[in-house]
């Protein structure tokens, strides 16, 4: 067996195991961590397929940003694990059926012979698909690339315009006044009379 095949099977085994653990572990934080492992391993597989750029973006975007965000949400929300898992068995047959169908569909599509796909010839070692992608993206398709960026900008504007509103009755602090607060605003010096130890404590004001 070639070395790349060994690496492939090694990574695939970890990927499958991690994927399985994502849906079977009890704790959502652990599940999210296993998902991180799955993404990372999948990125390794993509490197094997000579798609370095995709592999790097997968790690950067999904592991670095999406999953961290996800972990934050999972940690912040108080999710009751028991109620979430209560219906696991009930949904198992349907989930199994759907997974089986998806596997079948992938087999049909990825079979290759149905679409006349050929094995691509491997590129030489000094070929960089990052550079190739960058070159098309920033020259030939610069216009389309910028348009996609504008769509993202609109999404940001939309999200803020729709969610940021001052509702009355909300308790919120103005950071500016918090910053300029002086010692005198918060601290009050009180002259306490010395008391004998053991003496009865007087009622507070």
């Amino acid at each position: 067996m070639e070395f790349t095949s060994v690496v492939f099977y090694f990574l695939s085994a970890i990927l499958l195991l991690a994927g399985l653990r994502v849906v079977t572990v009890r704790h959502p934080v652990h599940a999210a961590l296993f998902l991180v492992l799955a993404f990372f391993t999948a990125a390794g597989l993509w490197v094997l397929l000579e798609a370095e750029f995709l592999a790097i973006t997968l790690v950067l975007v999904y592991v670095g940003a999406v999953m961290v965000l996800f972990l934050f949400v999972v940690m912040m929300l108080d999710i009751n694990i028991e109620t979430m898992r209560a219906d696991f068995r009930k949904y198992l047959p349907l989930a199994g059926l759907i997974s089986g169908l998806m596997a079948l569909e992938m087999y049909i599509v990825l079979g290759g012979q149905n679409f006349g796909l050929k094995m691509p010839t491997p590129k030489s070692a000094d070929y960089s698909n990052t550079k190739a992608l960058g070159r098309v993206l920033y020259t030939e398709y610069a216009y389309a690339f910028e348009l996609a960026a504008v769509i993202l900008l609109v999404a940001i504007v939309a999200a803020i315009a729709l969610t940021l509103r001052r509702r009355s009755g909300l308790k919120w602090r103005d950071p500016a006044t918090q910053v300029v607060v002086k010692k005198a605003d918060r601290l009050r010096m009180v002259n306490l009379k010395p008391q004998k130890p053991g003496a009865p404590v007087e009622d507070e004001e």
């Binding site: 389309a144 348009l147 996609a148 769509i151 999404a155 504007v157 939309a158 315009a161 729709l162």
Partner: peptide, 25 residues
Amino acid sequence: ASLLTLYLGLELLSLSLYTLVAMQR
């Protein structure tokens, strides 16, 4: 002149319109 720009333009338009409709919260 291409499916790419056609689709991107359409999405840009649609996303903006969705938001405009939703602005009356």
